[in-house]
Design a protein around this nucleic acid. Structure first.
Lengths: 218, 218
DNA sequence: TTATGATTCAAACAAGTGTTTGGTTTTTTT
DNA sequence: AAAAAAACCAAACACTTGTTTGAATCATAA
């Protein structure tokens, strides 16, 4: 038989198309979105990822660190795209407030529409906002706080008449609204006839116009 | 000694100014706001309320039912105030969109400013939004869903040119923004010099103008 | 005072938690 | 092919979870 029907195995690759670490991250994303960080157990998680219970601690050290890595996997790229889009908006001859808001919103939209699991991750992101978890807030602030600072400065430059306090209030409100809208929270369900992609693209359009109007009010 | 220094006990009243049930509800509100529903344990909760561990199951039956009662204690009154304010806005000769939005927002503001623990409860409310907990969503929808429907109808009457789908999108965004703003989530911290009360009153003002502008956009 | 019901309490229960262990298997390097 | 390293896995660990129990204590009514 000379192993004619032996399973093909390629070096460094799992028998499945995804490595153990990637399967864990994917399952974690899904379960954290559905049950929260405290509500998702490692046993449920590892069963869903089809890996051994001990694999989480072997590859990530702890559940807390796994949570960090779930964010890092998506936020590194998202932050880069947002800052690139912001730079492009600033380089335009006549950049508007809408351009800046789009630079923040569109990369998140692209993530949630194009990347598999992206939509799920945006829901995890909204959970991180809602949870007052001090450890997680510190991790996110230390690693990605500079992005929000850049956008706040750009909006401030666009609305020089607005004093800092008022501006921060409005940005605060927008951040919350964005997170909710993109995460598809809220009570009103989308119509079944509309696809997920169209649904989210409209949300982004509405949010940009809505936010711009709110920022310009008075 | 004829019991001269014996502790005074009055019929039907606990030795503390609050009954066991009320102390449990208060501690639950505080801990649910801080750690979430899954993250708050009954042992931590009963210790904080200075009651026996078994008291929760004795007075409320289960942890799930305790969660329900934490909402019922505040939402019954809040919903009544909101609907009364909405009726008052409708009775006005020339009621504006701002009046309707204020009818929704101001009662929540009053709750968070005037009632002890009210601000904490608004944070619990935001958590309920973020959690996709099916059991809790069903309870809230069944008991308080009619309030949101009333407001949606009133706003729709004020903006007849807006089609239903567009309107629902915008109301959805506002509900999220309101919850976030009132819960004091978001990254920007308030200035230490400003009192909690002033802080929240300004938030409500900004939110009403912001939401009205967004709803009228286009 | 005695009986009755409501409330509190320490203790135990069964089940679930994140993490660690020690050995086996698989993969990579020498 | 042998040695070294990496990955996997079943089982156990120590601990926390919500809930239940049965006796003790309290308040009210007979």
């Amino acid at each position: 038989m000379f192993g004619f029907f032996a399973p093909l195995r390629i070096a460094h690759l799992n028998s499945t198309p995804f490595s153990t670490k990637e399967r864990i991250l994917g399952a974690a994303e899904e379960l954290f979105a559905r049950n929260g960080f405290a509500g998702a157990s490692l046993r449920e998680l590892t069963a869903s990822a089809k890996v051994n219970l001990a694999a989480v601690n072997y590859h990530f050290g702890s559940k807390d660190n796994l949570i960090n890595e779930v964010f890092r996997r998506r936020l590194d790229e998202l932050s880069t795209h947002r800052l690139e889009a912001l730079q492009a908006a600033r380089d335009k001859a006549k950049s508007t407030l809408e351009d800046i808001l789009a630079a923040f919103i569109h990369p998140a939209l692209a993530l949630s529409v194009d990347k598999p699991g992206g939509a799920t991750f945006v829901r995890v992101l909204a959970r991180a906002y809602a949870e007052h978890n001090e450890r997680l807030r510190k991790f996110l602030s230390e690693n990605y706080g500079h992005v929000l600072k850049e956008f706040a400065a750009a909006i401030s430059a666009e609305l020089p008449h607005l004093d800092k306090e008022e501006l921060y209030w409005r940005i605060d409100i927008i951040a919350g609204a964005l997170t909710y809208a993109m995460a598809d929270f809220g009570v009103i369900k989308r119509r079944g006839s509309m696809s997920e992609k169209v649904h989210r693209e409209r949300a982004a359009e509405h949010l940009i116009r809505f936010a711009a109007a709110g920022l310009r009010a008075d």
